[in-house]
């Protein structure tokens, strides 16, 4: 589905953020990307949809090579990659509905989008998604009136309405409290399952990653140092990724206590 081949990014400052990363994500797999801050997790995700231009290497989505595309072609392919952000990155002064519909911008002409005249099918789909995440009543509220968890749900709707085949998720829980974090993670994983989406989830919370995903990739200073199942994530591996620390608490299985109020 998604294949990275020797993906490398060197910033203008000379910092090597990614060092020949090879990665293949099959359809329907949710993959967690862990690593200390500065390991290049954000850069990796942004190199895939070329918000950050990779220095060398290739990215293939299906049978399209993204790295060779021109601006127009890139925009077309970006529609197939939904992105969810750390600080939600909703346009705060627009309504929830406008934020969700902005996921359709790649499909709609400029004037239609400018006048907010989206096709009825898009509007219906937006409401269905909002209903799925329990925010249908909030549709006409302004995004900055929502709580953190609600905002992230709108962010998820915005990514899904693109009808993507891959989700790129950048620290979805970094600005949320522990309980909301879990609800949001669960929601993302469930939605990926429902829609058979591949997903790369950047996450710094190792326990949360182990709880929800089937495959974990560890990144350190731009290089892949681990790729395996959550169960294989031993203390020794964590030390390799993050450095020396007492990891016994981190790996401990967390009790799943909030099944009921899951989103």
């Amino acid at each position: 589905m998604l294949r990275l081949d020797k993906l490398t990014k060197v910033y203008k400052t000379g910092d090597k953020a990614l060092n020949a990363v090879d990665l293949e994500v099959p359809k329907g797999q949710v993959l967690a990307l862990i690593g200390p801050s500065g390991a290049g997790k954000s850069t990796l995700i942004r190199c895939i949809n070329r918000l950050v231009e990779p220095t060398s290497g290739t990215v293939q989505l299906g049978d399209v090579e993204l790295t060779g595309l021109g601006l127009g072609g890139l925009r077309k392919e970006r529609r197939r990659m939904g992105m969810i952000f750390q600080e939600y990155a909703l346009v705060e002064r627009l309504t929830v509905m406008e934020n969700v519909l902005s996921g359709r911008l790649g499909y709609v002409g400029f004037w239609r989008s400018f006048l907010r005249k989206f096709p009825q099918s898009d509007v219906d789909e937006a409401f269905r998604l909002l209903d799925r995440v329990g925010l249908v009543e909030m549709a006409d509220k302004r995004a900055d009136e929502l709580s953190g968890g609600q905002r992230q749900r709108v962010g998820i709707c915005r990514a899904l309405i693109q009808n993507p085949s891959v989700l790129l998720v950048d620290e979805p829980t970094a600005s949320l409290d522990p309980k909301t974090s879990r609800q949001i993670m669960r929601l993302i994983v469930e939605l990926c399952e429902e829609r058979k989406l591949a997903a790369i989830v950047n996450i710094h919370d190792v326990a949360l990653a182990q709880m929800f995903v089937s495959r974990i990739v560890g990144l350190k200073l731009g290089t892949m140092v681990f790729d395996g199942a959550p169960a294989d994530l031993t203390e020794e591996v964590l030390t390799r990724i993050y450095g020396d620390e007492d990891w016994s608490e981190t790996i401990q299985k967390v009790d799943d206590d909030d099944e009921v109020d899951a989103a």
Partner: peptide, 25 residues
């Protein structure tokens, strides 16, 4: 800038990014 980035990531054109990502701000 993150709001602009988010709109860009949806595959919006340059003008759409302006209308949705920058103008409201």
């Amino acid at each position: 800038e993150s709001q602009v980035e988010a709109i860009t990531a949806t595959g919006a054109s340059r003008w759409q990014v302006m209308a949705y990502g920058i103008v409201p701000q």
